[in-house]
Write a protein that binds this DNA or RNA. Structure first.
Length: 503
RNA sequence: GUCCCGUUCGUCUAGCCAGGUCAGGACACCGGGUUUUCAUCCCGGCAACAGGGGUUCGAAUCCCCUACGGGACGCCA
């Protein structure tokens, strides 16, 4: 008897959809389909502070755009719902109680302040930072006393004090990690929500997930998951840890260094099938080594053992080449026309621009030169125009702060964008009017263009971010750049004036 | 710092599991050809088994050590 294959993707709806999510989704999808199984989409929104429904929708839309489909999810009810973790809170709480009743977990009343100090001192003493078990031996009386007194608490996982955890990774073989390395993981936060670790295990089990295929960032917390399965008396799934997509400097792919938003590629005019094709060749080659393949061809021939384990660098040049081949070879001219229209040459998009362009054009031929930057992946600018009257070091500083501030915008609209620039001018002691020419150039490559805030709104966060970064790169190529040290001190200054950066 | 994972051209990779072809392909780059320009297209070139030690007649391939890279060490996921 073979159990049905069920895989899952479990994105967290915090921020804009990431290519890493699509990458993992593709392999989970292929594995499930190749084995005539199902893939589940589960929304991991246990972080109430950061999760949003907008982000959830954006993630689902971008995956659909790429052609990745799931068999069950928040929008596609199946037998194992609900598929949004926030709606499974009771289930999780019940399971936490089971662990508590069996002595596998315990309440912890330590303040975040104490935890922070503990961590700092452990690091100072060159120890592995982990919970010291302070609340491990509270008596039942002490516990109920504290709870009655209204003290906030979390539930922690009890970890064996001796021995090691062994598990098998489908690709990497046997992995052994000492229990001493594993922290007493928080399973339930003081707001009553479970953490990833608890919710993930409980939901995977209850949703009959047979194969967990996820990023290698999870390897070191797998022992916690295995332990939970043991405590509950459940059979753990098969684990496969895939390599992580990397920046050109080989660090884990991050939006701070690269375009990583699926929407970036969509807005920059890439084809979803080329994207999928490219993602499918990261860490993987088809058995016959063909380079151009559809998601169906990929899925039908998929063999997980063909994965390479070295982290592939997500580099744009091959993607562009691939995309060009799709345009020329895979689509008819008619189809290309339809795709371009669907992209941005449509009345919906033009309509957004027109109100801002109308005062500035006299005949239609003025339209393209005026608004062309909205259709470009990157505008070009010249040094003198870019800098204008501002000195280059100041320009760098303003652009950098602007980049960080823009990251904080929850709802991308004209007003919120305006507030960012207003506060930027204020805090940096400029008249807003005097810093705007710089940003006109950065965004449009031109000094004649649409109203800046509207243009930024239309351009969207992904393209905007890259333009700021490109401007910085350009300035650096012209000899003005921020050293690591400068950057660090700027970041410190930024924090004191504007608050912490967001992820 | 501790633990874990990884390492074939600049990049994506084939070959590794079942040791024995000049280590193959693609992108990028460089050169040439086709083309009124450019691009496409075609042809050619550059370029790698991280280092050291084993095992073996023979190692990119199996084993060990070192180096380097990455990840984890959150009331994030």
């Amino acid at each position: 008897m073979t159990i049905p294959v069920r895989t899952r993707i479990a994105p967290s709806p915090t921020g804009s959809p990431h290519v890493g999510t699509a990458y993992m989704a593709l392999f989970n999808y292929a594995y499930a389909k190749k084995n005539k199984g199902d893939m589940v989409l589960r929304i991991e929104d246990t972080d109430q502070k950061r999760s949003s429904i907008d982000s959830e929708n954006a993630i689902m839309n971008s995956l659909k755009w790429l052609g990745i489909e799931w068999d069950e999810g928040p929008d596609k009810t199946g037998k194992f719902g609900p598929y949004r973790q926030s709606e499974r809170k009771e289930i999780h709480a019940r399971h936490v109680q089971i662990l508590l009743d069996n002595g596998f977990a315990y309440p912890c009343f330590c303040s975040s302040q104490r935890l922070k100090e503990l961590r700092t001192s452990q690091i100072a003493n060159k120890e592995t930072p982990r919970y010291d078990g302070h609340c491990l031996n509270l008596t039942k009386e002490e516990i109920s006393q504290k709870i009655e007194a209204g003290e906030k608490y979390v539930i922690r996982l009890k970890i064996p004090t001796e021995g090691k955890c062994c598990f098998t990774d489908k690709l990497r073989g046997k992995v052994e990690i000492d229990w001493k390395q594993i922290d007493h993981q928080v399973l339930q936060k003081s707001d009553g929500f479970p953490t990833y670790h608890l919710a993930n295990v409980v939901d995977d089990h209850l949703m009959n997930i047979s194969h967990v295929i996820r990023g290698e960032e999870w390897i070191s917390s797998t022992p916690k998951h295995i332990l939970l399965y043991q405590y509950f008396g459940w059979e753990p799934p098969s684990y496969t840890h895939l390599p992580l997509l990397r920046n050109p400097d080989k660090s884990k792919l991050s939006k701070r260094k690269n375009p990583t938003g699926i929407n970036y590629f969509r807005e920059a005019g890439f084809l979803p099938e080329a994207m999928i094709n490219y993602l499918g060749m990261m860490g993987y080659t088809l058995p016959d080594q063909r380079e151009i393949f559809s998601i169906d061809e990929f899925t039908q021939t998929f063999d997980i053992h063909r994965m390479s384990l070295g982290g592939p660098i997500f580099d744009l040049s091959k993607l562009k080449w691939l995309n060009g081949r799709y345009l020329r070879e895979k689509l008819s001219e008619k189809e290309v026309v339809a795709r371009i229209i669907e992209w941005k040459i449509n009345s919906k998009f033009i309509q957004k621009i027109i109100p801002h362009a109308l005062q500035r054009i006299e005949n239609f031929s003025d339209f393209i030169p005026l608004t062309g930057f909205l259709f470009e992946e990157n505008p070009t600018f010249s040094h003198s125009q870019l800098i204008g009257k501002i000195n280059p070091d100041e320009a760098i500083k303003l652009i950098k702060i602007c980049e960080w501030e823009l990251e904080k915008i929850q709802e991308w609209n004209r007003n919120n964008i305006f507030f960012i620039f207003q506060s930027l001018a204020e805090k940096e002691d400029y008249k807003i009017k005097s810093i705007l020419p710089l940003f006109f150039q950065v965004i449009s490559g031109n000094s004649v263009s649409l109203p800046l805030f509207d243009a930024i709104e239309i351009l969207g966060p992904d393209l905007t971010r890259l333009r700021l970064r490109k401007a910085l790169e350009y300035l650096s190529s012209q000899g003005s750049s921020l050293s690591k040290k400068d950057l660090k001190s700027l970041e410190k200054e930024y924090r004191s004036k504007y608050g912490n950066r967001v992820d």
